[in-house]
Every structure is written in C-alpha cells, then in structure tokens.
Design a binder for these strands. Structure first.
Lengths: 212, 212
DNA sequence: TAGATTGTTAATCGATTAACAATC
DNA sequence: TAGATTGTTAATCGATTAACAATC
C-alpha cells in the first residue's frame, strides 16, 4: 500500500494494546507506579512473551526488575492509539441504539466527545438527546468539515447502512464503527471496525455450544 | 480440556462463519438458490481457499460447478452456530444501553428473544421497557433457572461488571456478552465475548492513524 | 551479589493460501 | 466434452511462545 510513517502493526497487537490501556488506567487510578509484563500477562490471560513483544512495538522502555512506569506507559499507549481527550465522533442514526450511545458515559470517560447525532427521519429533527439536537443528514457534510470530524458510528438499520457509509466517506470521515448487520464496502483509505452486537451474540451461542 | 463432541474449531473460523450467515440470509431473501465459494469470498473480502476450508468444518457439501445450496447452507450454519428462533438472552443493566438493546430490532430478526432485563437500582423496578418490566437482581437466579437462560448481556458500568458476572455464572448462565470496559474473570466453562464499544472506538482511532 | 525482569532472536505453532485431482 | 467448482493436501506465511543474554 502507501508508505506509512509508522511500522506496520499486526492487528492482534492493536487489539491487545487497547486492552492494556484499559487495565493500566485502572492501575494508575489506584496509585500503582510500576507494572511488569508478568502483571499484564496474568491480568489479561496472555504470556509474558506476548506482552513484551507487543510493548516492543510501542516506544516504552522498561526497567529491569521493576517493569514499566505506569504513567509513562499510559501516555505512550494513548498516543500510539491516537486517543486524546476530546477526540470527536459523530453518530448516524437516532434510534434506540444511536441515542443510547450519544448518552453513553463510557465514551467521555475514555476520551471521546460526541460531535453530533444525525437521522434521515425529518420527524426527529431538532429533538434533544442529552445536550445535542438531532440533525438532518443534509447538514452532515458541513458538520464533518467544520469540526474536522474523522470518526463516525453507524447505528442505522442494515438496509440503510451502505448509503450512510457512502455519505460519510464522501464527507471526509476516515474511520467507521459499524453497528449495523451489513457488510460495508468502502475505499481502502477508510478504516472500518465491525461491532455488530447481534453477530457477537451468535458467536457467543456457538462458543457456548462448543464447551458443552 | 474436557472432551468435546464437536471437533475443535479455530475462532477465526467461527467469526467468519457468522458473517457467512448474515450474507447468506440476504441472498436467500433475494431468492438466490446457489452460492459459490467465489461469491462468498468476493462479498466478504476473503480468498476462495479460506471459504472452502471454513465450509469444510461445517457439514455442508457443495456441488461441483454450482456451489452450495443456499437454503441448506443457511440451515446448517444456523445449527452449527447454535442459533435457533427464540434463543433467549437476558440483559443486566437498564441504563441507556441496556434499554436500547432490549428494544433493538436486529435481535429478534436474528433469532434472539430478550428473556428479561434486570437492574440493581430499586428505583427502576417494574418500570416498562417495551413489553418487559425491569426486574430486581434478586430474581435473576430464579428467572435464569425457570426459563433455562444460557446467555446474558452485561450492560452495567465497569465497576459493577465483575459482580454481575459472578451472579450470572452462579445462576447458571453459560455465555456472557460483555459491553462493560472491564476484564471479567470467569470459570473456563463460561464463554465470554467482549463487545466494548469504547474500546472499538480506540481501535478505530489507531487504524485511522495507521493509514494516514 | 543474587534474583528478577527486560528486550530480542530463534523455534514453534497455527492459520491462510496455493495447488490440483475429482466431479458434475 | 470443456470448463467451473468442490474438497483436500501441501506450502507458505505470520503470530505466539521459548530461550537467553543484558541489565538493574
């Protein structure tokens, strides 16, 4: 593909690193100063080797016998993931799920700010969701440009998902979190993470059967 | 581990198979009778080899030159995943997210039925969410036993997640879908799928940065 | 110092892809 | 028949784990 500033990171590593961050944040709250690869491995059910390999992708250097400095680790990981206070996200779809996410406290806690909620149903226009007002899809592109929004959550029914994705991509959004049960086709330059709860449930169903 | 009836299936396979099911269901609605490994591979961005290997784990046999019979494929995959009409799930946590999921239409469409919604806040007791009433945590174990519930969705704040998981496990639930930003510790006999939207957003953040 | 832990290289393991005979 | 597709085995690729010297 195109030449990247960053070394190519395997996606299992990224997934684990975002788990490390959650864990490290909790340790920091508790006042812990140091964490070792063994601590992390035990807490997350991994091997020490895996943790150390993952850490080697970051620019965190550890100290023999003590491990990694918690605060520095947390800062470096947050920077690595591109997470910073006030990273803005918009939500498309103001149904039950879209509204719930707009009000979801964990987002703010994890550094995200909801930059707007949109719906194609003009009956919902201007209705309040927390401190936000539901906006029309016509204003989407303008909002994305003005506020320099890069991330969007798709919380619309499956049939509408592709059309919404197209609009978002055209408006310049760079990453989509897809909650709809639909496979999205997007240009290579746009990242998509699937988070389809109904699909997860099916996977769970299967996992349960496997261990019976 | 314990001896299983089923051959051990790699989890990437399970994840892909649940994607096949979504796709196949749509094809069936459209009246398609046959689907080939090439069709599936193209639709989901995989190689034909991968699709055929995955299919070989199922008990679907294909026909040279035509591929797989759509209806039979769909039925076999649904059975393989353990998904059947009316598979019951309970939701713990009647905050924004829990309520939204209780009302979420995609669940019913995908064969799941919400068997109850629970919250520890007695102020919410008996409040209506769609056709359900919010129940107290004290009744959880009874409901799980009577209705033979095997799956639960955890939609409570991170601090409460482990306690809720313990209660669910004790009540006899076999699979947990965790929406809380907390790492759950459960016995090996219980399956856990993580579906933490805030974490997914962070992963997305990172993915976006990678391709800049 | 002795012991614990990092950082990195090499070995292992498993998943994906390629290849191809069998089949319709 | 010729061509397309399955089903399976072998080759490749990449991720995980093990091992160990360096370090504090």
């Amino acid at each position: 593909m195109n030449n990247r500033r960053q070394k190519e990171i395997p996606s299992p590593v990224i997934r684990r690193v975002s788990k490390y961050l959650i864990h490290i944040e909790r340790l920091e709250e508790k006042g812990r100063k140091w964490v070792s690869s063994k601590d992390l491995a035990d807490a997350l059910g991994l091997t020490r080797s895996t943790v150390r390999m993952d850490v080697s992708y970051l620019r965190v250097s550890g100290v023999s016998k003590r491990g990694y400095a918690v605060e520095k680790f947390r800062k470096t990981v947050a920077k690595f993931l591109g997470v910073h206070k006030g990273c803005k996200v918009i939500i498309v779809g103001a149904g039950n799920l879209g509204r719930a996410l707009a009000l979801h406290k964990a987002f703010a806690q994890k550094g995200f700010k909801i930059g707007g909620i949109f719906d194609s149903d003009s009956g919902l226009l201007n209705e309040k969701v927390g401190s936000l007002r539901i906006r029309s899809m016509d204003t989407l592109s303008q909002v994305v440009r003005r506020q320099k929004i890069r991330l969007a959550i798709i919380a619309v029914p499956a049939q509408a998902a592709q059309e919404v994705a197209d609009k978002l991509v055209q408006a310049g959004v760079r990453g989509l979190l897809n909650l709809a049960c639909a496979d999205l086709i997007v240009p290579n330059s746009v990242a998509v993470i699937e988070s389809r709860i109904a699909m997860d449930l099916r996977e769970l169903c299967c996992a349960v059967r496997m261990r019976e």
